[in-house]
Design a binder for these strands. Sequence first.
RNA 1: GCGGCUGUAGUCUAGUCUGGUUAGGACUUGGGCCUUCCAAGCCUACGACCCGGGUUCAAAUCCCGGCAGCCGCACCA
Length: 577
Amino acid sequence: MKNEDVMNLARKRGFLWSSFEIYSGSAGFFDYGPLGATLKNRVMEKWRNYYLVREGFYEIESPTIMPEEALKASGHVDHFNDAMTQCKDCMDVYRADHVIRDSTGKEVEGLENQELTEILSEEKIRCPKCNGHLTHVWSYNLMFQTLIGAKGKKTGYMRPETAQGIFIPFKRLLRFFRGKLPFGVVQLGKAYRNEISPRQGMIRLREFTQAEAEIFVDPHDKSHPHFHRVAQDILTLYPASCQESGAEAIQLTAEKAVMDKVVASELLTYQLCLARSFLMELGLSEDVLRFRQHMSTEMAHYAIDCWDVEVYTDRYGWIEVIGIADRTDFDLKSHSNYSKEDLRVFMEYPEPLTIKKLVLKAKMGKFGPLFKGDAHMILKALEEIDAEAIQEALDDGGVYQLELQGKVHKITSDLVDFQVVEETLRGEKIYPHVIEPSYGIDRIVYSVLLHSYTQEDDRSYFKLPVEVAPVGVSIFPLVNQEELATVAQEILEDLRNQGITAEKDTSGTIGRRYARSDEIGVPFAVTVDHTSLEDDTVTIRERDSQEQVRVAIDDLPQTLHLLLSGKKEFKEFEARK
RNA sequence: GCGGCUGUAGUCUAGUCUGGUUAGGACUUGGGCCUUCCAAGCCUACGACCCGGGUUCAAAUCCCGGCAGCCGCACCA
């Protein structure tokens, strides 16, 4: 299997290995070795180039440990928490709420374990499979719990996603962006989930790296100013409807996907295109990529639309590497409710709005003496009520009955006047909607390794794009002789001083060295041969084609810069030869 | 979490059933020789019985427990 070959090579050459090996390891944790860490950093660098430089977003960094309240608001404390029960006979494990719902039809989400245990025994619920007895209900929370502070009185959790770190300081961020929508904030960092049984290598980790962007937008404007740039991109879409009917994925241009409302908005579609372009530049081809829409059953209740960007793997099938969702105003509203902070944005209308409105004015001379202490409270209550409704009631029966805290107050026409006033509205306060692309960096790195792995004849290597290859160039003396080795060493130092990642290898024969260099995906190799000693030229060999061109040693740094930045292709140099 | 199978250098593996000499080989890797372009050859070196306990004069080998991996079941907001 390709997965095995790739993971073996990745382990052997210092990309990836499972963590804590000398203590017999721990499932769900991976180390990035020297080349893996570099590769991952280059992928993240590229991501930053997309979202910070090109989209103009800003990055923040928040703590990985979060206090309980913050995760209460986000719903993670209550809903990340599965109530489990197990059959004492067949040992099958179930979610307690599912068993109860299936057997009694009761929706019991959110009840305490104690209550669920009681329901199980009162309703005499047995194992749905073998009718055996079920154990008491226990919680399995997917978050790692910890204690904050010396006395350990405050519960904290390792964050299960980086997104919350952006929602929480929203007020500060809004101020930073001077109060204007849309704006985007990103965070790259570790997130933690204590998976029950992670047995899928790099695919299901207990500690993983996310790159998330939260794009705060006007709910009424989900367009993107640069949509035309991606309008003709062809997307492989697998909408919920196709999944339900068992149909194949469909291919549409981005423009058509928006027009036909296959994807909910232009902005969301733009994000799909961005993700596609990002993955393709990492060497993933179109035929291993697709966008799968969440089915209504799997989508969070508050989301308008959600698409998983999936990559095909031989070992695990289609895997989600990026999730792109329109989360609406759920997160900000929820944090607003819990924190009592107003997390709305004042949206100014293009033109101030002038409206004519009927307003009730109390005649305080009569009103005050009549209601005495309650007068103030009644006035406040009347302000909340549409004045026209009151006027109507007075015209009809001469009295408007206001019920307040169990008391009925009679408002008669001699107590109030009505006036038409003009009011100017400059805008309104709204909760922005959030578009969230969430990238699983580890899965992307795995996909890049998997799909760049190439076997040709008897050589196998990672065909990594020049942009992310951990080492840019290998320097070899053709044979291991001192004069050649000296030149090679000089070139190595020169290139390193010019900011190029270079390695030298003098061991074994030249063929072996090429093979070793290819294996870790070094795109170019420079060979110092005897001609070099005569005319100060060397050859550059390209990894993929194994072709060589000869260049002057003096031109080497500049040539390699062009090649490694992707500004020039190797073929162009060949043509000149 | 449950059940089944498995665990010997970086990798692949012999040996385990039937306990007994210095745990053998191949590839890889380091050093050297040779070598004027794609893992050639020669010399040489490094390197392992998953961890803990038990049985025994003696444990890689038998027994128990743990850990990890694979497969199946379950779980995956």
